[in-house]
């Protein structure tokens, strides 16, 4: 009983005890590196003319940001990303939504097994998914490309560089369609059944119900799906890096994250590398903020 009394603390102190351990990790794992990176992005290392001796660290204001933003290679990586998003975002919203609508109206066996099967790739690490697809894109070993013969060479990013971006989209779609399918399917199951019943009694067909009743009601889910898709796309690194290890002719600065990595580790320009990273993070923040604000204005989110 005495022990119990000793542990009897106010809510504030209990909250502090439960939150502080996480808080320390949050500071060490997120705030501190963010602050340190921000500081580093305002400095550059200058070596003496011959490139020997201890480098001198000097404060350069926004010079690193200016350097990165005026680098055509960095801007080009955003161009690639834009193309990637233009293909990826519609696919990763529409395909899971369509599949979820089909599952919602399907037989019981399909409702039980299909979401589970399509969700399985999400357990496969991104790097391993990229490996499997890279080999399926290799004409000499891929059963699909072998069967297609000459047409197979056109579909492989290793023999036809113009399908590189769609090939990356395919890997990401394979990993995420099931994830989004479950999100949509759950949202559809939570819909008010009486509205659907009313539409049915009014003589609306399945397609009409899906289009006019179900889809408008899951718009807020679409915002969440789109938000995660954009943030994920901005980080695109693992899959293209893996494909590059099979085909060195793929650009080492294909995506913004690859650019930041290259500048940091190959050019050893830490200031510029961190500046690029921070620009990516800022863009992610701006996009999620505006998507949220837009959704709120429209009353979806």
């Amino acid at each position: 009983m005495r022990r119990k009394n000793r542990l009897r603390l106010g809510e504030g102190r209990a909250a502090a005890i439960l939150i502080v351990p996480f808080g320390i990790l949050f500071v060490v794992g997120i705030l501190l590196p963010l602050g340190y990176g921000l500081t580093m992005s305002f400095f550059t290392e200058k070596r003496s003319g011959l490139g020997v001796g201890t480098p001198e660290t000097i404060f350069v204001w926004f010079a690193n940001y200016a350097k990165v933003l005026s680098d055509p290679v960095f801007l080009q990586s955003f161009g690639t990303l834009l193309l990637y998003c233009a293909i990826y975002i519609p696919i990763i919203i529409l395909v899971p939504l369509a599949l979820a609508l089909f599952v919602d109206g399907a037989y019981k066996w399909a409702r039980k097994t299909i979401p589970l099967l399509v969700f399985i790739p999400h357990a496969v690490p991104g790097l391993v998914a990229a490996i499997i697809w890279a080999y399926l894109y290799t004409p000499a070993i891929s059963p699909v490309l072998k069967a297609l013969g000459d047409a197979g060479d056109i579909l492989s990013p290793f023999t036809n560089s113009s399908v590189l971006v769609p090939s990356l989209v395919n890997i990401a779609a394979w990993e995420w369609i099931g994830y989004n399918l479950i999100i949509y399917f759950t949202a559809l199951q939570a819909l008010d059944q009486s509205t659907l019943e009313a539409a049915r009694v009014d003589g609306a067909g399945q397609v009409r119900i899906a289009w006019s009743v179900k889809i408008p009601q899951v718009t807020s889910t679409t915002f969440v799906v789109a938000l995660f898709a954009v943030i994920g796309a901005l980080q695109l690194f693992t899959e293209p890096t893996l494909l590059r290890s099979n085909d060195p002719t793929i650009s080492s600065t294909l995506t913004p994250a690859m650019y930041a990595y290259l500048v940091t580790f190959t050019r050893n320009d830490y200031g510029a590398g961190v500046a690029a990273s921070i620009l990516i993070a800022v863009l992610a923040a701006v996009i999620s903020y505006s998507l949220n604000a837009f959704g709120r204005k429209k009353g979806f989110a």
Binding site: I30, Y36, M40, A260, Y270, S277, I278, A281, A284
Partner: peptide
Amino acid sequence: FAGKERLFGVVLLGVLIPTSALALPLYL
């Protein structure tokens, strides 16, 4: 407790920071 929602807002901000953008600062 005081400042609870503001503190939670900071945690949510952490959710939205792309982990790959954090990796280079973490390395430095």
